[in-house]
Amino acid sequence: MVRINGEDKAAAGKSLCDYLQEAGYDRRAIAVEYNEVILPKQDYETTVLQDGDVVEIVCFMGGG
């Protein structure tokens, strides 16, 4: 299982790029932290999710 935004997902073996597309994220609007390291957008294709990985996907929202 891969822990994505605090939830366990059966995403091991998929590329990050594929996962983001399947889950419906807008790539322009997000940033990804992969095992506590920020992942550059060009690495989304080559990064393959593995069991035990921790992924945070963030975006901007309104704030003060």
Binding site: N5, A31, F60
Partner: peptide, 17 residues
């Protein structure tokens, strides 16, 4: 304009930017 950073939610497709 200030903004906050939050976990992205796939249900919301709108981008504040």
């Amino acid at each position: 304009v200030t903004l906050a950073v939050r976990r992205a939610n796939t249900k919301e497709q709108e981008n504040i930017l």
